[in-house]
């Protein structure tokens, strides 16, 4: 059986390598992409979409289908991590550790025993708990808002400079993961829990696909933003620009939520009880 698998892989790989010879040479000016496609984008993108950044115009307008399914791929990665790693049933651990905050004493409570009351004096801690480091905590508290602000800037400024939904979403997710790293998993689960992150991941894809369907309902092609002009105000060309922004926001939400979701599953081995 394994020999068949090997043969299939070799055959497919060989075919792929063999057919790379048919590709146009690197940077060939006579290749189809360079003769009509690229010049069209370079000459018309600013007139068609009012977006100065060519890459954004191609990514989210001309090649919008591609980007939509890229977002779906990101979402699928989050779903895959969820199904592979998430432990279905949360087992009650053998013993739980509680910390009495005023005195700093740690209590070990065996399974089935009475747990301390929910009060500000007791907190449940991880089995690999380390004392909070004041310097790291304060620095991250200082930095996280700036990182999030920068992420929003990257999302919104994708029309004019390098950036856009994927990059901004990753930066935003990284800020949330930084918070989770410097505090702990239960703390960050309080801020944004698993359901929220899953919901955000799905709704980001929904915003993207919903924009396309809205265009369809308004009588244009799927993801043809000029149909949104009556809703957004302005002329159809400006609607392209606004439509790109809406779509980018959808991408950013999806990427951010998927990053956080994957982190939760990886950091706690799918149990979501304790972790970094």
């Amino acid at each position: 059986m394994r020999i068949f698998g090997l043969l299939t892989v070799l055959l497919c790989g060989g075919l792929l390598i063999y057919h790379t010879a048919d590709f146009p040479a690197w940077g060939d000016p006579a290749s189809p992409a360079s003769t009509h496609l690229s010049p069209y984008y370079i000459e018309h993108s600013i007139d068609d979409t009012m977006v100065p950044n060519l890459v954004t115009a191609v990514l989210a307008d001309y090649r919008s289908y591609d980007t939509m399914f890229e977002t779906v791929v990101v979402f699928a990665a989050g779903i895959a991590c969820f199904f592979l790693l998430r432990a279905a049933k949360s087992k009650t651990p053998e013993s739980m550790l509680y910390r009495h905050i005023p005195t700093g004493i740690t209590l070990r409570i065996e399974k089935g025993s009475k747990t301390p009351p929910d009060s500000a004096d007791f907190e449940r801690i991880d089995s690999v708990w380390v004392p909070y480091d004041l310097i790291i905590k304060i620095t991250c508290r200082l930095l996280v808002p700036f990182i999030q602000l920068f992420a929003l800037y990257v999302v919104a400024h994708g029309h004019h400079s390098p950036g856009g939904g994927f990059q901004g979403g990753v930066i935003f997710g990284a800020a949330l993961i930084l918070f989770a790293l410097t505090h702990n998993l239960s703390n960050s689960l309080k801020r944004i829990n698993e359901k929220t992150s899953a919901l955000f991941a799905a709704s980001g894809v929904l915003v993207y696909a919903g924009t396309g369907i809205l265009c369809l309902l308004l009588g244009a092609n799927f993801l043809d933003y000029s149909a949104l002009a009556p809703l957004l105000g302005g002329d159809p060309k400006m609607a392209h620009s606004h439509g790109i922004l809406i779509v980018e926001i959808g991408v950013a939400i999806a990427v951010m939520a998927v990053m956080v979701w994957i982190y939760y599953n990886l950091a706690s081995r799918g149990r979501h009880d304790e972790g970094l």
Partner: peptide, 15 residues
Amino acid sequence: FIFITSPTATHAIVD
């Protein structure tokens, strides 16, 4: 930002 974060990172590694 580098002035704030770089020494903090070193501190975290030492810790």
